[in-house]
Simulated assay, not measured.
Amino acid sequence: MDESVVVSPDWLAANRDRPDIRPVDVRDAWEFDAIGHVPGAASIPFDSYRDDSDADRGTLPGADAFASLLSAAGIGPGDTLVAYDDTHGVFAARLYLTALEYGHDDVRLLNGDYSAWSREYETTTAATEFEATNYEPHPLDREESPLVGREAVEAARERDALLVDTRERDEFAEAHLPGAVRFDWREAVDDETRRLLSEGDLEGLLESHGITRDQDIVLYCNTARRISHTYVVLRALGYEDVAVYEGSLTEWIAMDGEIETGAS
C-alpha cells in the first residue's frame, strides 16, 4: 500500500522524531488530554474543520479557517501530516481530504487508529506547545480537486460512471442515487487489528462489489465523512479516477434529485 498515503504505526514510530513529521489527533480535545495521545501530536478536533454554518452537511471549513488551525498547531507547508482518530480512521480521513483540498503536499492516514498505536507504542497525556506559524493555503483548482458538485455528478451519470455509496445497508435501502453500488466503508477495516485489510484482500473486496481501478468512480455518503475514508483507501491502492461528491446525498435530496430505494 502506498506509504505516501497510508502509513503504519511502525512507520510513525520509526519517523516521529523527525521535525517534519507531525501527528495530528482529530479526536475530541478531552480525549486528547485525558485518555492520551501520540507523543508530539497536535490536537485538531474533527468539529473544528467542519463548516459551522453548514452543520447538516458537514462541508469544508474554508481555506482560511483551516489555515488558522494549522498555524495554531505550528504546522508549516513542508511538514508531513499523519492524521489519526480512534474510530478506524474515518474522521482522520476527513482531515486528509481537507488538507489535500487546501493544497498541503504531504498528508497521510495512520493505518489503524489511536487504539492500534497504543497497543504497541508509548502514549502521553502531557501537553505539547507549538510555535505558531503563518500557514498559507493553496486550494486546488477545479481540474485538480477530487471534490465535485451536483452538476458533475449528473454528468457522471450521463457517461455511466460508477456511483459508489459508502453507507450502511439500511441507509442505502431507504434512499440512494440511481444505479449506485453499495460499499460500506467499514468493510475495508479489520475490527480486531483496527487496521485496513491487506492490499490483496482490499482488491478482492472491491472487485466483489464491482469496483475496479479501470472505472470512473464517484463516491458519496450523507455528509462527506465516510467517503473520505474510502477515497483514501482507493488512493492508497493506486486508483486514479476517483471523485468525491462533497454535498453527498444530503444535498442531492435537498435539491430534489432522483433517488431509488431498496437494499443492495
Rank of each mutant, 00 (worst) to 15 (best):
L202T: 10
V218Y: 07
R226L: 06
I211H: 07
D216S: 08
V189N: 00
S198R: 13
E199A: 11
D190F: 12
P146S: 04
N222R: 15
H209T: 01
R225P: 00
R213S: 15
V218T: 10
R186I: 13
D160C: 07
E192V: 03
Y220R: 06
L202E: 15
D165S: 02
E171N: 09
V189R: 01
R169Q: 14
A161K: 13
I227L: 08
E187C: 09
D190K: 14
R186M: 14
E171T: 08
A155I: 05
I217Y: 08
T223E: 12
E207A: 15
H229V: 07
E158P: 05
G200N: 15
V181W: 07
F183T: 03
D170E: 14
L140C: 03
R186D: 12
I211Y: 02
E154Y: 05
V232M: 04
L177I: 06
L177C: 05
E168A: 00
N222D: 13
A224F: 04
S228P: 01
L202R: 11
V232Q: 07
R169H: 13
E168R: 01
A224L: 08
Q215S: 06
V189H: 00
T193N: 00
G179H: 08
H229N: 10
E203H: 13
Y231I: 08
R225G: 03
G200S: 15
A224Q: 10
T166M: 06
E174Q: 02
I227V: 01
H229E: 06
V148T: 04
A224T: 05
A156N: 03
T193Q: 09
E154G: 04
P146I: 03
L163D: 11
D191N: 15
A175K: 13
L205W: 13
L147S: 04
T223M: 10
D201R: 15
A173P: 12
T193Y: 07
E143W: 11
R186K: 14
E203L: 14
V181Q: 01
A224P: 03
N222E: 13
A173R: 12
L147I: 10
E199V: 03
L163P: 06
L197D: 06
L162I: 00
T223N: 12
D214R: 04
R195G: 11
H209Y: 14
L197Q: 11
T212N: 10
E192A: 11
E154W: 02
L140A: 08
D160G: 07
A188T: 04
E154H: 06
D170R: 12
V164Q: 03
R194P: 04
S145I: 11
E187T: 10
R225I: 02
L202V: 08
I211K: 04
L140N: 07
R225C: 01
T193W: 01
D214T: 08
S228Y: 02
E168Y: 01
A188S: 10
H176S: 02
W185E: 07
L219A: 05
H209K: 15
P178V: 01
A188C: 02
Y231D: 01
R169L: 14
L202N: 11
Y220G: 01
E151I: 03
A155F: 09
T193V: 09
D141E: 08
R159Q: 10
E174P: 02
E187V: 04
G149H: 05
L219M: 02
E199W: 12
R150G: 08
I211L: 05
A188I: 02
D191Y: 14
D170S: 11
A152L: 07
L140G: 00
R150C: 03
